[in-house]
Write a protein that binds this DNA or RNA. Structure first.
Lengths: 149, 149
DNA sequence: GCAAAGTATATGAGAGTTCAAGTAAATTGG
DNA sequence: CCAATTTACTTGAACTCTCATATACTTTGC
């Protein structure tokens, strides 16, 4: 009944798990060490920094930063404690909150960015040919297309 | 100084993060829901099940299951509570421990495997052409080659 | 309009992960 | 052969994540 993975598929699957985990661990370690935040928090700051007014509704932010709402809520609480983000009430929908990146938060992001980009290159792009990068892009797009909804 | 990512690289990078996170979340959700364990525990059980005597030294197991020693130690403690794994002292090296998969642990793994494989197919392989799978294998091998050590 | 259903977010408990020590045994080098 | 170092593993605390639930506001349908 079950369509088990054949040997090639097994190898590819395990290699995929290994490679993606290595990349994620490298990112997390670098950011934790040099900027004192996990990668998930970094993604939140990036999303906010790119938004108009450097602010966004919680639910939209969750989508952009690829976070669950609950995770985001906890994360924003932590980021607030550090003074990197502020929470404002939403004017037109009184259920809603808006997360706002503070000046200090933006500064923290700017300080963290170069080291992070270095690590992204080191752990992913430097290992691949331009052709492979292109293919990886297509592959990831296909996966997202299947899983996203 | 910093070599920032250009637009293509940005897109690829974000797509990579998104895709790999989606796959990992799908795996974890399926296993947690249907088998009551996270994917990391599943990998530990798989590694043990493939070892001679279904047992392995802690440090070797950590390597095979792609876990830190600390993480493994905590995980084995949990798996012991459930009766899925047992810890024996290592005869030839009295510092060492050997984790042993119990019959119940093996049964739990057998019960979990079909649903897990289904999810692996659904979340990764079904989204890709055979050609893409082959390329993904090469790409992951290249990344591992760069990061592993 | 107003009860019912839906949406936006928060919160608390439980579980897993990491990091920094801590213990114990084995190995090394003078 | 024994002090110093290294290796194997554990432990506890701090932190993040998930899941279920709670709260407050909005929209829907009669």
């Amino acid at each position: 009944m079950t369509r088990w993975l054949d040997d090639d598929e097994q190898r590819t699957w395990r290699s995929f798990l290994s490679a993606t985990q290595l990349v994620n661990e490298a990112l997390d370690r670098q950011l934790q060490r040099d900027a004192g935040m996990p990668h998930t928090y970094y993604m939140i700051l990036v999303a906010l920094s790119e938004a108009p007014e450097r602010s966004m509704r919680m639910s939209e932010l969750a989508g952009r930063a690829q976070s669950s709402q609950s995770r985001l809520s906890h994360a924003i609480a932590r980021l607030e404690e550090r003074g990197w983000v502020r929470r404002d009430r939403c004017p037109d929908d009184r259920r809603g909150n808006v997360a706002v990146l503070t000046g200090e938060g933006f500064a923290a992001l700017e300080a963290a960015a170069p080291g992070h980009v270095e690590e992204v290159r080191r752990s992913l792009f430097d290992a691949l040919t331009p052709e492979q990068v292109r293919r990886l892009g297509e592959i990831c797009a296909a996966v997202r297309n299947t899983l996203e909804r």
